[in-house]
Design a protein around this nucleic acid. Structure first.
Length: 480
RNA sequence: GGCCCCUUCGUCUAGUGGUUAGGACACCGCCCUUUCACGGCGGCAGCAGGGGUUCGAGUCCCCUAGGGGUCACCA
């Protein structure tokens, strides 16, 4: 049987980097085994829908280079791929369970459930739906149940979990997991608004969409026994499960907002390259070898192995991400980064920067920054004359010798026709020889006057990019 | 708190009974050098603890500790 996997986000916000990792592993696994990767939108909670969330998630996935064979925007044989469009299917299946005794009607109100839980808490027992005393078809009787249904009294459908026995689940990542049935709650399957809960919809869809491997986050592990029970109640073959370790904050709690950026969109906006984010995130929880850090999507596909996924959570270390991004930045062509730089400049209100100039900037600074978007901070003087001059640097190189240097150099610069890095360097070298001063005594003062900062790219390359007029103007302004 | 999962350098990890416990990021030092970077070389640093099993345990078992997840008509 050919492999079919799915990534099933709910459209409640932007795509989380943890979600990206889950989507990626599904994608890699599918591609590795020449299988099919499905994108399914789980929008069964009408109260949490966020406008455009589905579009944003798909866009983020596209940006990352993760493609789907079947999705809401690429219909396949098992659609629709949006759960809110499959309501009749779930109702039908709930009926099936009701008929074979695996599920039952319950009429309790939210208040009644709260009271039940409160009583259980007081009594020191674990809160769980008590079907022997609450208002459901067992306590009410067939006749009363029918009457309530006829009167359209709101109801839910609950899973009838066995009171005894063990539930076993085999997980590809974790091995055998055993839970006692009495620890499992009578999960609501159909809500009173007629929508299914995740548990029902997920099992029904995975079965109907012929999913062979359920690859999802570890947070789903505790509810997997309910899913197992559902497969059994339907008499369906179970898919294989693989629960992925969580992505963690530096303090090892589940990766969350408030402790940094968590959405793919955040990283895109910060200027990270999609290849770098994917590469970095792929290696959080899985590693093909460990003697290499840089992997293209194809490399990842060729080496991906679910069985080698780690069990423990992985801290999302932004410093490592920065390094990975810097690696990609160096091997990519400057043109690829132009848009990122321009977007950042636009954000800061620097206008009139051309594509060609931007590409040159990237070429000049890419070994000194982690992202193209850092260039404005690293070298603000490339966009406007320096306003601040480093105090220490100024003390060291802005002294008396400077006037003499400038008066000797400026005329030479002015006579230049080709203001290229090599030409400027040539002039500087000649001057160094003639005047008997070290190159450092020329380069550093120039850097001070032109950039105001003691750090930067090669000064001659910087000057070429700045242009002859601008360089002369800055030198004159500084000494004025 | 109940249940479930997890535990190799600060971080990401390699390791599937016999290794001087390897690599990468970060950090530190040296070299290169036109500053800063890049690059090269080197350094710091780890098997949570305790019991077993075994000739031999990072690797297998048990316990403890610690961490995390989850306990909704949310996914």
């Amino acid at each position: 049987m050919s492999v079919r996997v799915r990534f099933a986000p709910s459209p409640t916000g932007s795509l989380h980097v943890g979600g990206l990792r889950t989507a990626l592993y599904n994608y890699l696994f599918a591609r590795r085994h020449n299988g099919v990767c499905v994108l399914r939108i789980e929008d069964t909670d009408q109260t949490r829908l966020v406008e455009n969330a589905t579009e944003n998630i798909i866009e983020a996935l596209n940006w990352a280079g993760i493609g789907f064979d079947e999705s809401p925007v690429a219909e396949g044989p098992y659609g629709p791929y949006v759960q809110s469009q499959r309501l009749d299917i779930y109702a039908e299946h709930a009926k099936l369970l009701l008929d074979n005794g695996a599920a039952y009607y319950a009429f309790d109100t939210a208040e009644e459930l709260d009271q039940m839980r409160e009583r259980q808490k007081q009594a020191g027992v674990v809160p769980r739906y008590d079907r022997s005393i609450m208002r459901n078809q067992y306590t009410l009787g067939e006749e009363e149940t029918q009457r309530l249904l006829d009167e359209s009294v709101p109801f839910v459908v609950r899973l009838k979990v066995p009171l005894t026995g063990d539930i076993r689940v085999h997980d590809i990542v974790r091995g055998e997991i055993v839970v006692q049935a009495r620890e499992v709650d009578d999960q609501v399957l159909m809500k009173s608004d007629g929508f299914p809960t995740y548990h029902l919809a997920n099992v029904v869809d995975d079965h109907m969409m012929r999913i062979t491997h359920v690859i999802r986050g570890e947070e789903w592990l505790p509810s997997t026994p309910k899913h197992v029970l559902l497969y059994q109640a339907f008499g369906w073959e179970m898919p294989q499960f693989a629960h992925l370790p969580l992505l963690l904050n530096p303090d090892r709690s589940k990766l969350s907002k408030r402790q940094g950026d968590v959405s793919v969109e955040d990283y895109r906006l910060k200027g990270y390259m999609p290849e770098a984010l994917v590469n970095f995130v792929a290696l959080l929880g899985w590693n093909p070898t460990s003697d290499r850090e840089i992997f293209s999507m194809q490399d990842l596909i060729d080496t991906f192995d679910l069985a080698k996924v780690n069990k423990a959570g992985a801290v999302f270390d932004v410093q490592k991400l920065d390094w990975v991004n810097s690696q990609y930045m160096r091997s990519a062509s400057p043109e690829e980064q132009v848009e990122t730089l321009l977007a950042e400049l636009h954000k800061r209100g620097y206008g009139n920067i051309g594509n060609e100039y931007a590409a040159h900037l990237i070429e000049l600074f890419r070994e000194r920054v982690h992202r193209a978007s850092e260039i404005p901070d690293f070298a603000p003087y490339m966009f406007a004359p320096p306003e601040h001059f480093d105090e220490q640097y100024k003390l060291q190189y802005g002294g008396e010798d400077l006037q003499q240097l400038v008066s000797g150099l400026i005329p030479k610069f002015m006579l230049m026709e080709e203001f290229t890095a090599t030409a400027v360097q040539q002039i500087a070298k000649e001057h160094s020889k003639e005047e008997g001063v070290k190159m450092g005594q020329i380069i550093n003062p120039l850097r001070l006057m032109l950039t105001g900062k003691p750090v930067g790219a090669g000064i001659f390359e910087t000057m070429e990019l700045l242009g002859k007029e601008e360089c002369i103007r800055r030198i004159q302004d500084f000494t004025a």
